Each structure stands twice: as C-alpha cells, then as structure tokens.
Amino acid sequence: MAREIKFGNRMMGDGHPAYVIAEVGINHNGDMDVAKKIIDAAAHAGADAVKFQKRTPEVCTPPEQQKQMRETPWGYITYLDYRYKVEFNEEQYREIDRYCKEKKIDWMVSVWDEPSVDFMEKFDTPAYKVPSASLTDHNLLKYVRKTGKPIIISTGMSTMEQIHKGVNIVGEDNLVIMHCTSTYPCEPEELNLNMIGTLRKEFPNNPIGYSGHEVGLVPSAVAIALGATSIERHITLDRAMWGSDQAASVEPGGFERLVKYIRVTEAALGDGVKKVYESEKGSMKKLRRVVSE
C-alpha cells in the first residue's frame, strides 16, 4: 500500500510536495475581515490550505467550565459566551468557502463534536481534521469516518496506546497521522521530532505529518527532513493579538519564509543516490590531481 492519499485535487504523501496547512483556528477572534486577511497571507505565502476550528459550544465545552467568567475583548463574560463569540455561522462559512475559492486555496476545519460534522457536510472540503483533544473520542472518530472524506488526526497529549486505539477505530484508509505536542508555545526539548520516524515505522501505510506549536521556523523544516509529508502551523496577523493560540502562531512574513524553508528542504534532500553532478565537473577538472575509476 502506497503511503499517499488523494487530498482534493492533489496527492499527499511520500514522493509528493509537503502539504502545508496554515492553521487559522480561532485567531480571527470572530472577525470575518481578520479571517480574510489571514487567508490572504496564507495564500501569498504558498500554503496549500487554511484550517479553521468548528465547535458546537454547548456540546464540547465541559459543564464545569461553561459558567466560568473570563476577561475577553467582548467584556467579562462566561466561557460559554466566549466560545460563541469566536464561532462562525453558516453564512460566514459560506463566505469563507467563496473567498478561498477566489484565492485558489483549500480550506478545512477541525471538528470537535458530531453536530459540527453535520454542519460541515454542507461544504465540499478536502478532508476533516480531528484535533489532539478528541483523539480518544472514539464515537467522534467513527462519525467522521462515515463521511467518506480523508481524515487527519493529531496525536498531542496522547500515549502510543491511545494513538493505536484511535487509528484502529478510525481505520488506516485515507488517514494522515500528525505528530504533535499540545503545548502553546512548545519548548524545543518537548518537540520530540524523532517521533515522526517512530510513527512512520508504526504506521507504514499512512502519511505522517507534523503539527507544530513552537516559536520559530527551523523545527518545521527539520520535520520535512525526518519524513513529514505535511506541515501544520498556526498563522496570525500579529502575535500580540488577543487569544490563547497567538503566541504559538507565525506572522505573515514568517509564514512566507516557512514555506520557502520547506520547499528548499525538499529540494535539498535529493534521492539518496550518489552521483557526480554536471556542476561539479569544472571543480573536478581544476582540483583533482589523481583520477581513478
């Protein structure tokens, strides 16, 4: 079985350019104009897709947290009210759909609950993402699988046993597994990029990706060198904006550099077959004193 799957109009997996996902999440803070500016930045940078988050607040917000109060840009409100403030409705998602088509960039969402899957079935996105927090929600995994779309699962805050159980539940067909550490931002010592190789050995039929929350760009390029076939990083207009994910996000100029680093890394890896390049022959003629076969 080839380690590749069809993702919309292109292939993702070994032997194909890395699929770069710009994770908008809720960095738009419920503002459509901000969301569009982030989409613009992702498209300009050369990302393949932007990704949002879809929750049904009253379903996926734990009851003990719903009435907790917090300071927000909308005032001192309950956590449940805040969750509603950052959720886009159907009309807004239709505008996102239209705008992404105009900008020629894929879009998708992380689904956090079953009603959100039903909601998203109104749209023709290339895949569904199941976030790390929901990897152990086996009912949700089964529900997403029924859609027939490719699925991406993230593995943050999970043991290997939990990852295997999740994969067994959702099935290996049309499945991308993302290595992830769910700390925002994440220190280098906890990125554990060698897990990419571990996951490639554990799941030889599946493309393995990397969902990063570090500060900086280098680890994401290193992830490509270690075999990641997709990269997901949060994107924002300004890391100083309000929101819990902003500090672990990449600003537009940085995201443009990130995509360039990924493409340079891919080009530099080569095929592993030693050869004498045409460009070396001039140096060989000038510098090599002893010629041997």
Rank of each mutant, 00 (worst) to 15 (best):
R3A: 08
F7I: 15
H16M: 06
E23G: 11
V24F: 02
I26P: 01
G30W: 03
M32K: 07
K37H: 01
I39G: 06
D40E: 12
D40M: 04
A49Y: 02
R55I: 11
R55V: 03
V59G: 07
P63I: 11
K67N: 15
W74A: 06
D81N: 14
D81F: 01
R83A: 12
F88T: 02
D97R: 09
D97S: 13
R98L: 11
K104A: 13
I105K: 04
W107S: 05
M108K: 00
M108T: 15
M108C: 15
V109F: 03
V109Q: 03
P115T: 10
S116H: 11
S116F: 10
V117Q: 09
T125L: 14
V130R: 02
D137C: 08
L140I: 06
L140A: 04
L141K: 02
V144Q: 09
R145N: 08
R145H: 10
K149C: 10
I152G: 00
I152P: 02
I153G: 10
S154G: 13
S154N: 04
T155K: 01
T155E: 00
G156V: 05
M157I: 09
S158L: 00
N174E: 15
V176L: 14
I177F: 08
S182K: 02
L193H: 05
I196Q: 02
I196K: 02
R200D: 06
G209A: 09
E214Y: 08
L217F: 09
V218T: 15
S220I: 03
V222Q: 03
L226T: 05
R233C: 02
L237F: 00
D238W: 00
A240Q: 08
W242I: 04
D245L: 08
Q246C: 03
A247I: 11
A248K: 02
S249F: 00
V250T: 13
V250G: 01
F255Y: 02
E256W: 00
R257C: 03
Y261V: 01
E266M: 07
A267E: 13
V273M: 10
V273D: 07
K275E: 12
E278Q: 07
E280Q: 15
E280P: 04
E280F: 08
G282N: 13
G282T: 12
S283E: 13
M284V: 05
M284P: 00
V290C: 03
S292N: 10
